Amino acid sequence: MPNDFNRRVIEEFRARGGRVGGPFEGGRLLLLTTTGARTGASHTTPLGYLPDDGGRVLVIASAAGAPRHPAWFHNLVAHPRVTVEAGVFTYEAEALVLEGAERDRAFARAVETDPGWSAYQDRTERVLPVIALREIPTGPPNIAASSAGAALRAVHDGFRRELALVRQEIAASGPGLGAQLRINCLALCQGLRHHHTGEDAGMFPMLGRGHPELTPALERMRREHEKLAVLLGALQQVISASDADPARVRAEVERLTEEVERHLEYEEAQLIPVLDGPAC
Score class of each variant (00 low, 15 high):
residue 182 R to W: 02
residue 261 E to T: 14
residue 90 T to V: 15
residue 276 D to M: 03
residue 158 G to C: 00
residue 118 S to Y: 07
residue 31 L to S: 07
residue 32 L to F: 11
residue 61 A to L: 02
residue 134 R to H: 03
residue 64 A to N: 08
residue 196 H to P: 04
residue 159 F to I: 10
residue 114 D to Y: 12
residue 191 G to K: 04
residue 34 T to Y: 08
residue 14 R to H: 12
residue 16 R to Y: 01
residue 73 F to N: 08
residue 176 G to Q: 09
residue 269 A to D: 14
residue 108 A to W: 06
residue 149 G to T: 10
residue 121 Q to M: 11
residue 152 L to M: 15
residue 97 V to N: 08
residue 193 R to W: 05
residue 131 I to G: 05
residue 157 D to S: 10
residue 249 V to Q: 00
residue 179 A to L: 08
residue 134 R to L: 11
residue 62 S to E: 00
residue 174 G to A: 06
residue 168 Q to R: 15
residue 41 A to E: 15
residue 107 F to E: 05
residue 61 A to N: 06
residue 275 L to T: 11
residue 223 R to T: 15
residue 225 H to Y: 06
residue 84 V to E: 11
residue 91 Y to K: 10
residue 55 G to M: 10
residue 207 L to T: 05
residue 20 V to I: 07
residue 41 A to T: 15
residue 59 V to E: 05
residue 190 Q to E: 14
residue 3 N to D: 15
residue 198 G to R: 06
residue 260 V to I: 11
residue 251 A to C: 07
residue 21 G to C: 13
residue 200 D to N: 14
residue 150 A to R: 03
residue 48 G to M: 15
residue 69 H to G: 02
residue 185 C to K: 01
residue 114 D to M: 12
residue 225 H to Q: 05
residue 45 T to D: 06
residue 8 R to W: 02
residue 139 G to E: 07
residue 2 P to R: 09
residue 153 R to S: 14
residue 194 H to F: 09
residue 73 F to P: 06
residue 33 T to I: 14
residue 264 L to H: 06
residue 270 Q to Y: 00
residue 183 I to W: 00
residue 145 A to L: 07
residue 98 L to T: 12
residue 161 R to L: 03
residue 210 G to C: 00
residue 88 V to Q: 05
residue 151 A to K: 08
residue 279 A to R: 04
residue 92 E to H: 11
residue 223 R to D: 13
residue 266 Y to Q: 13
residue 172 A to G: 04
residue 230 V to W: 12
residue 53 D to S: 09
residue 40 G to P: 11
residue 194 H to N: 08
residue 259 E to L: 09
residue 152 L to I: 11
residue 58 L to K: 03
residue 143 I to A: 12
residue 33 T to L: 12
residue 136 I to M: 12
residue 94 E to H: 13
residue 195 H to F: 11
residue 64 A to F: 09
residue 31 L to F: 09
residue 76 L to P: 08
residue 279 A to N: 02
residue 279 A to E: 04
residue 125 E to D: 15
residue 186 L to E: 13
residue 83 T to S: 15
residue 26 G to D: 02
residue 50 L to A: 14
residue 78 A to L: 03
residue 135 E to A: 15
residue 6 N to P: 07
residue 65 G to H: 01
residue 67 P to S: 10
residue 213 E to Y: 06
residue 172 A to D: 08
residue 159 F to A: 10
residue 139 G to F: 07
residue 27 G to F: 03
residue 184 N to R: 04
residue 253 V to D: 06
residue 161 R to H: 09
residue 126 R to N: 00
residue 141 P to K: 12
residue 66 A to G: 13
residue 184 N to Q: 10
residue 216 P to Y: 05
residue 215 T to Q: 09
residue 206 M to G: 02
residue 255 R to K: 12
residue 32 L to R: 05
residue 70 P to M: 08
residue 273 P to K: 08
residue 175 P to W: 01
residue 238 V to P: 00
residue 182 R to A: 09
residue 78 A to N: 03
residue 105 R to I: 10
residue 192 L to D: 03
residue 257 T to Q: 14
residue 155 V to C: 08
residue 106 A to N: 03
residue 174 G to I: 01
residue 271 L to V: 00
residue 270 Q to C: 13
residue 4 D to I: 13
residue 175 P to H: 00
residue 63 A to W: 01
